[in-house]
């Protein structure tokens, strides 16, 4: 990694400059992560200190993968992440394509589409929870008109739809900005040349625009999965609280429940370690891809 060609020479100053950030990182990031790793290898003792914690190797992990609740949570997380990502990205791509065709109204539309980024996930959850409220919400009222009996308090499917819509709604802005930037960097001459050769709008989209958007799309894919898996805690906690019957109990929410409500330290730590592994894999994918993009 480079520095400037000429550098200052001072034997203590750089350490002093780095100290605040490194200390915060060590105390509040690395140390707890190491603790989680360590705790994940123990079965917790009882509350009275009669039975001390025992070292159980990977038993906590093995137990997790035998636990139907955990396996269910994995499945729920998968459905939730895929749903949120697909919904959030496809709506954003559609909007970005349309806005990109506008000239005078471009900025106005952008302003209107961008601000939900500022809304906290928990608030997004509460907003949609209100709209979908079975007794007074507007959408259940409309759906009743077409013969669908909406109730996210009893129906697993309805609850999942609710949290996916709330989580995707907030993320549309972010995806939209990146898609719009991606579309604007596609040379107009390519599209004009294809049009002169007689390619239809649909064909131009499939053979020129979509392939040229693939770096942005891939980047957004990773970012959205990370968002859906880790940043949506508020959406779940403020609305369904994982229910009904575990239907929206995503991994992050389960770690929190098991650690703070059920006080099962060993299992919660093992779940943390699995989540860390997932984040590390996703971060590595993201950065490898960025390296590549920078190089060409």
């Amino acid at each position: 990694m480079q520095t400037k060609r000429t550098t200052f020479s001072n034997w203590w100053l750089p350490y002093a400059l780095l100290a605040p950030q490194v200390l915060v990182t060590l105390i509040f990031f690395i140390w707890p992560a190491a603790q989680a790793l360590w705790q994940s290898l123990f079965r917790q003792g009882d509350a009275f200190g009669i039975r001390p914690p025992t070292f159980v190797w990977l038993e906590n992990f093995a137990a997790l993968f035998r636990d139907t609740l955990y396996l269910n949570s994995l499945k729920v997380t998968l459905i939730f992440s895929v749903g949120t990502t697909v919904l959030g990205m496809s709506a954003a791509l559609l909007f970005a394509m349309m806005v990109n065709r506008m000239i005078r109204s471009r900025d106005t539309y952008t302003t209107f589409l961008v601000w939900p980024y500022a809304v906290a996930p928990a608030i997004a959850g509460v907003l949609w929870w209100f709209i979908f409220n079975p007794s007074i919400g507007i959408l259940p009222y409309v759906m009743e008109g077409v013969g669908y009996d909406w109730n996210h308090r009893s129906s697993s499917r309805d609850a999942m739809i609710l949290v996916v819509v709330a989580a995707a709604w907030k993320q549309v802005s972010y995806n939209f900005l990146f898609f719009l930037a991606g579309l604007q960097s596609i040379p107009q001459s390519l599209i004009e040349a294809a049009a002169i050769d007689g390619a239809s709008r649909r064909k131009r989209f499939l053979t020129i625009i979509l392939p040229l958007l693939s770096p942005v799309t891939f980047f957004l894919l990773v970012v959205n999965i990370v968002y859906a898996m880790f940043d949506t805690f508020g959406v779940i906690h403020a609305t369904t609280e994982g229910g009904p019957a575990q239907a929206t109990n995503i991994l992050v929410y389960k770690v929190f429940r098991d650690g703070f409500v059920n006080l099962n330290t060993g299992s919660s730590a093992a779940q943390s370690v699995i989540l860390m592994a997932i984040v590390i894999v996703l971060t590595v994918i993201q950065f490898r891809y960025i390296e590549r993009r920078v190089n060409y």
Binding site: A33, T265, M276
Partner: peptide, 17 residues
């Protein structure tokens, strides 16, 4: 490394610290 360790994945030990 901080990028790889969001609060959400190490809730309990961070709380303890």
């Amino acid at each position: 490394l901080t990028l790889m360790l969001p609060v959400e994945v190490r809730i309990v030990p961070t709380f303890e610290v």
